[in-house]
């Protein structure tokens, strides 16, 4: 029985209380059109480094756990390093391979079934959107 997908660790992450940042430098919101789930991600940034991350999720356990892990991992990361990490995480989730990425490493202990990969990736999509938004603002 592969209910092991919902390990105690993931369920604990999903239940963790997360909070928005009071004064983020950038905020991104992503929706999952399949189920209406929504992730809001706030980043505070100084000199190209994420100094704080916050957010909220209206979503399933995998989506909420994904956001919790991301909020743990983001502080201290350079903006420059994030696109490659997002791509690595995306590929490894799609391939069901564990241990390749820093981001979402906890979730990657077990392959995520294809129909649920979007749930796990929603926080990452919000991060990608936040980075795009920063990039657009910088170029403007």
């Amino acid at each position: 029985m592969s209910e092991a997908l919902y390990s105690d660790k993931i369920l604990a992450l999903a239940a963790r209380k997360v909070a928005r940042l009071p004064k983020p430098d950038v905020t991104a919101v992503r929706n999952n059109p399949l189920c209406g789930d929504r992730v809001t991600l706030d980043l505070a940034i100084a000199e190209g480094i994420v100094t704080a991350a916050g957010g909220e999720a209206r979503g399933c356990a995998l989506c909420c756990a994904g956001l919790a892990v991301l909020l743990d991992d983001l502080p201290g990361q350079t903006l420059e390093s994030l696109p490659a990490q997002i791509e690595t995480a995306r590929r490894s989730i799609a391939m069901g391979v564990s241990g390749l990425a820093v981001v979402l490493s906890v979730l990657q202990e077990r392959p995520i079934p294809r129909p649920r990969q979007k749930c796990v990736l929603l926080p990452l999509e919000a991060l990608q959107e936040a980075l795009s938004s920063l990039s657009t603002n910088t170029h403007e």
Binding site: M1, S2, Y6, L34, C35, D37, G59, P113, P115, R116
Partner: peptide, 13 residues
């Protein structure tokens, strides 16, 4: 129980 989590667990059954 979120519907997607429920769907996955039902699939496990």
């Amino acid at each position: 129980v979120h519907p997607h989590d429920l769907g996955t667990i039902l699939d496990h059954h």
